[in-house]
Design a protein around this nucleic acid. Sequence first.
DNA 1: TTGTACGCGTTATCAG
DNA 2: CTGATAACGCGTACAA
Lengths: 329, 329
Amino acid sequence: VTIYDIAQEAGVSASTVSRVLNQKPGVKPETRKKIEKLLEKHHFEPNASAQGLVSQSSRLIGIMVSDIRTQHHAEGAYFIEQQLQEQGYSCLIVNSGFSEQGRENGLRLLASRRVEAIVLIGSTFQTEGVRRNIERYLGDLPIVMENGCIDLPNVYSVLADERNGVAACVQLLLKRGKRKLAYLSLENTPSNALKLEGYRTAAGDANAAEVEIARQDEEEAWDAGYRATQALMRRQPELDGLIFATDQLANAGVRCLQDLGYAIPQQVAVIGVDNSVYATLSRPQLTCVDNKMRELSLTCADHLIRILQGKKVAHRMMILSDIVERDTT
Amino acid sequence: VTIYDIAQEAGVSASTVSRVLNQKPGVKPETRKKIEKLLEKHHFEPNASAQGLVSQSSRLIGIMVSDIRTQHHAEGAYFIEQQLQEQGYSCLIVNSGFSEQGRENGLRLLASRRVEAIVLIGSTFQTEGVRRNIERYLGDLPIVMENGCIDLPNVYSVLADERNGVAACVQLLLKRGKRKLAYLSLENTPSNALKLEGYRTAAGDANAAEVEIARQDEEEAWDAGYRATQALMRRQPELDGLIFATDQLANAGVRCLQDLGYAIPQQVAVIGVDNSVYATLSRPQLTCVDNKMRELSLTCADHLIRILQGKKVAHRMMILSDIVERDTT
DNA sequence: TTGTACGCGTTATCAG
DNA sequence: CTGATAACGCGTACAA
């Protein structure tokens, strides 16, 4: 059912129906009433494609994530969709996976859909390939990156200060008298690289180990964390402070240390990053870096709306991390 | 940049460009080559709105959830997007919230976008309002419901057997010699109603309490679960078997019982539903109903593809739940 | 092998 | 106040 069908039934032209539909003035009240009745009767909904074509605006936003099942990706997608729905936008979601090809496909798809802006959630989009494909396919379309950064005039970044967050952790451990520290991470994302950097510079001589955990095929992160901790402590039983790239890993680490008979935090202290449910469900509860993922997501949504409204916003902004001290330090 | 721009630069008509774009035969190889070069040079991507308009197909799928931050909603959205991306579809995501108004808005929005199918994830969409609005705005558009059911010829359901799952839990508790049982749930969703039903019929005389937890404003589910358990055990200290509508609640319940000094499972046994991370992170680890949310999601994706391919699929199918027995029974 | 002409559903401009 | 008419970008008969 199109506006023509409505027009015909009402005995008017399509233009008049369009005027009613868009609440434009210049329609006789009775005519308007009659058309509104028909619109309601047929449960008419305008064809967004046609509207987009003629108005040159899709009212579509693209959200790309590596995997929406990741808690804070879902959170980001939620806030963005939530906020933009109120502004009359709809959101296309793309799971790119972790390959450069997947990311390119996603960007091209969004280009083809003529989205009016894109949000890239997660540091995995901070790659040269993404940069190139943005230039190629998206031109100067506004793009907001959550916890990632690409140097292009149309790309805006909202970053977590994970480097200093982790550095602050190290300080805390040192203050607690720990002298043999280790840092463990799973994937080597740009985000994790920053954490490692923070760890290195702050730890100095106390840096006794750096582990990039190798995941065995489809192994769960938790299990990989447990195994890695076990192997590490067997190799270097003298370690007294462990920093994990995520709470999930740290949770596994705590459990492993307990099983090995270490007293936490007396013998070994543990710190995670994210301040997620894994931190609060752990016993003892995890001390961790709160990288403010929620604020990041909310800020991205805000930023996006501002940008769409044509307002100026900072190209880069950073949200400072906190340390939440609980029972493992 | 449109096919006209390309056509002009190539010195041909737009139709020829269209033919090349869609890999249609009947174009001189040299002409084709030349056009392909230009397409590549300009990083041309066809306007999906225009394609949709003329071809009468949007290649768009709508995914509606109450809140994508819920783990198994995200999981569902993931599998569906993942599978359909391969088939050349894109996914629109809508967070409806929990109001009937939100759900109606979502459905109308998807109608306006002319999606070719809709997936409704979560039992909250099993309402009379949704049924009415589907009839009104979506006509006979294929709709797949995950864990929900609406009796309409174009609506397909993939259901979890939570009723029998919970009933089996009760049997287990009875077998363990428990005689004073209680069931606790948070929201009163259709899904939880089924669980309660399963509990009631199976428990019979052993049914000593049913609690619908009242959440204090923005309180976390976990805290609400803790409080509710505390209040309940104070009121009825003789209870010896607690069934919670979700693992998250059960996790809180376990913690609370420990704090109150109950031995688990000797004095009080606990069972949850979902088989989520809350179950495995709990100590003692939670016995729970595995309602197979993952299989549900995967099956929905499969179903959807079959339907889009015009194949016949069952209108309703149920995926049987398992009990995963761990340390709380 | 290629081009012309039309239509998809809508909005906007202009004339009446 | 209302109705033609042209555009938006693309696909497709049909004609050349």
